[in-house]
C-alpha cells in the first residue's frame, strides 16, 4: 500500500494521530501538498460518504473520519500554493434563523469538504441578511440551508428571496428533517438532499448544470 493509500485508510477508520503523522511523513518525503489532499485525504472521505449513504457507517464514523481528515488538512493546508487551492467550489452553509440544530449541517459541511469544496460554515440561527452578507463576501457557487423544525423552514423561503439578485451566480440547496423535494420546489431552491452524502451529489449536479 502506498503512503497516500494508507493515509486514506486511516481517514476512513478515523485515526487523527496516524493521519497527521502520515501527512508529515509524506511532506518530508517530498510528496506535493496537492497530492496529499487529492490522493490521500479526500479519497478517504469519499469512501466514508459512499458507505454512509448505504448505511455501512453511521454518524459517529463520519465524525471521526472528518476529524482525522482535518488533522491532516491542518498540516498541509498552509503549504498549498495558490494554484493548488483552485478548488472545486465554495459552499456557504448554515442553519436558518430560529433553529439551533447543527449536526445535519455539520455533516453536510464535512462531506462537502471531504469532496474538495471549500466550506464556509456561518453557523446556527442565521438570519437571511447574514446569508446575503456571506454570499457577497465569499462569492460561493453553492449556498446550503438547513432546518430541523417546521417552524423554521419558512425562514428558508425568506433567505432564498433575499438572495434573488445573486441567483445567476449561486445555486441554493436545502435539507433537514422536515424538508421534502416538493417544499424545495415551492420555495424556489435549486436542489434538495435527504442526507449529508447526497448533499455532495446535489452540489456536484448543481455545478455541472
Amino acid at each position: 500500500m502506498s503512503l497516500l493509500e494508507e493515509m486514506s485508510e486511516w481517514v476512513i477508520s478515523g485515526n487523527a494521530n496516524k493521519v497527521k503523522a502520515l501527512v508529515e511523513q509524506a511532506l518530508a518525503e517530498g510528496v506535493a501538498p496537492a497530492s496529499i489532499v487529492n490522493e490521500g485525504l479526500i479519497p478517504g472521505m469519499t469512501v466514508i460518504g459512499a458507505k454512509f449513504k448505504v448505511n455501512e457507517v453511521y454518524v459517529p464514523e463520519v465524525l471521526i473520519a472528518a476529524r482525522a481528515m482535518h488533522a491532516g488538512m491542518a498540516v498541509v493546508k498552509p503549504l498549498l500554493s495558490v494554484s493548488d487551492t483552485k478548488e472545486k467550489g465554495i459552499a456557504v452553509i448554515g442553519t436558518v434563523k430560529g433553529d439551533l440544530h447543527d449536526i445535519g449541517k455539520n455533516l453536510v459541511g464535512m462531506m462537502l469538504e471531504g469532496a474538495g469544496y471549500t466550506v464556509i460554515d456561518i453557523g446556527i440561527d442565521v438570519p437571511p441578511e447574514k446569508f446575503l452578507q456571506a454570499v457577497q463576501e465569499h462569492k460561493p457557487q453553492i449556498v446550503g440551508l438547513s432546518a430541523l423544525l417546521t417552524t423554521t423552514m419558512t425562514n428558508m423561503k425568506a433567505t432564498i428571496e433575499l438572495l434573488k439578485p445573486y441567483r445567476d451566480q449561486v445555486k441554493i440547496m436545502i435539507g433537514g428533517a422536515p424538508i421534502t423535494p416538493k417544499f424545495a420546489d415551492e420555495i424556489g431552491a435549486d436542489g434538495y438532499a435527504a442526507d449529508a452524502a447526497s448533499a455532495v451529489d446535489c452540489a456536484n449536479n448543481l455545478l455541472a448544470s
Binding site: Y58, V59, P60, E61, G104, A177, A194, D195
Partner: peptide, 12 residues
C-alpha cells in the same frame, strides 16, 4: 433515529 435511518449502527 434520524429522518433517514439509525444515527449509530445497530451493532453499537
Amino acid at each position: 433515529g434520524t429522518q433517514q435511518g439509525m444515527m449509530i449502527s445497530p451493532d453499537l
